[in-house]
Write a protein that binds this DNA or RNA. Sequence first.
DNA 1: TTTTGATTTTGGTCTAGACCAGAATAGCAC
DNA 2: GTGCTATTCTGGTCTAGACCAAAATCAAAA
Lengths: 239, 239
Amino acid sequence: MQYITIKEGVASLIDRGELTANKKLPTERALAEQFQTTRVTLREALTTLEAEGKIHREDRRGWFVSPPSMIYDPTSTNNFNVMASKCGFVPSSKLIQAKQVGASQEVAELLNVPVDTQVYRIDRLRMLDDRPVVVTFNYVIMENFPGLLEHDIESSLTDVYRDQYQKPYAKTHFQIKTSSLLGETAQLLRASTGSPAMLVQRVNYCAEGVLLDCDIEFWRPHAIKIESTASVITTTKNN
Amino acid sequence: MQYITIKEGVASLIDRGELTANKKLPTERALAEQFQTTRVTLREALTTLEAEGKIHREDRRGWFVSPPSMIYDPTSTNNFNVMASKCGFVPSSKLIQAKQVGASQEVAELLNVPVDTQVYRIDRLRMLDDRPVVVTFNYVIMENFPGLLEHDIESSLTDVYRDQYQKPYAKTHFQIKTSSLLGETAQLLRASTGSPAMLVQRVNYCAEGVLLDCDIEFWRPHAIKIESTASVITTTKNN
DNA sequence: TTTTGATTTTGGTCTAGACCAGAATAGCAC
DNA sequence: GTGCTATTCTGGTCTAGACCAAAATCAAAA
């Protein structure tokens, strides 16, 4: 379990302040030499630290000390910009593409419509202090929001729903699980293929229970801490 | 990117039904030979599949196809047993230890008490269909629940709070992030050291807002899917 | 049949390299 | 100083092994 020792060694470099947030770790070869091991073993140690959110990789760029993560409340109506600002980050967004497509199996299930129903698909990359942290895929039933793509959809869809269509967002159903980053999603996040991810899938409704959209979010795990408070009304008998 | 091909190859074995839930994959050496590669590369492929929740490892036992995961609603008052039953699993619990300790830094912060405040610490392992899926560490302020350890705390603490102390659980604050499994926690879950984990931290309150306990839960990622519905009342202006 | 002890298999971990393509850098021309 | 290009560096990926301890299996004894 040499790699556990190495892991702790690197962790203590961070805790002792020799490496600070967003700073690049020494090269793998240098670290391997420093800890008298091979790159394979070193990477095992770094991968474990990555799983704990202490460090992360940028594809072909190296390992970096992770800065504090953004607190993400899935039960709140606050959009990305608000949540980011509350945590002291400067948020920004980049529209990757927006187009009309037929709903895939996965999307059709989330939206509870037949496969191939016409929907708008909106892909965006979102950043905190210019660090890419999440890629989001929104799917909106075309019929409900005619001409949606003509509005400014880069920064906040919920603002457009509220201001342009008088449909404020008020209810959400969400799922969270772990996943991995592949292909273009990984590239946009400057992540290596196969890096771990937090997958958040949501279905959003407005006050009348009318469906707004669904979205699929691939987060860099180190960049997000999910946190919420819930008061529960329902009481269920125990088995 | 040979390992991506291998990953897809193994995934298709599962999708085609050649490997079914809970079944053990062939040995690493056999798979490496089948895909004409080395164990190192093969493990890279399997690790990625693990991150996606399709397979998981049991320490020194091998790789297994993951069964459907349990839906965990952090906002519900349902306890583990109820949630498990709802998903068609047979839940069981094992008390690892229960003792009185002084609150650590981490626990003190969660409970909002000074470090070293006397608390009960209750460690449990919980299973679905006899598969260990989560290790929970509960911390309860002693003063609030005198004699707690004399009750049956193996299966459900919330039941004891409600039935023995007339303090039903009604509100929760939760945090979710990724982590890794180490030491005894890993062993209890039959996981290898350094395996990925979902870390859920909760602070629970009863209806009057009185603090009940906090708990720290290390989940096998493949075993859990976090899911909830939230209707939001607060509306926050956009930045 | 059950228990126990011996043997084999297997995963966990590690070594010591290698090649390649993209990123970073240094150097040169404008 | 700016832009471009050649070179170097570095991470991504892979090979072909090795040793060990735990798990699984098998065989013998009770």
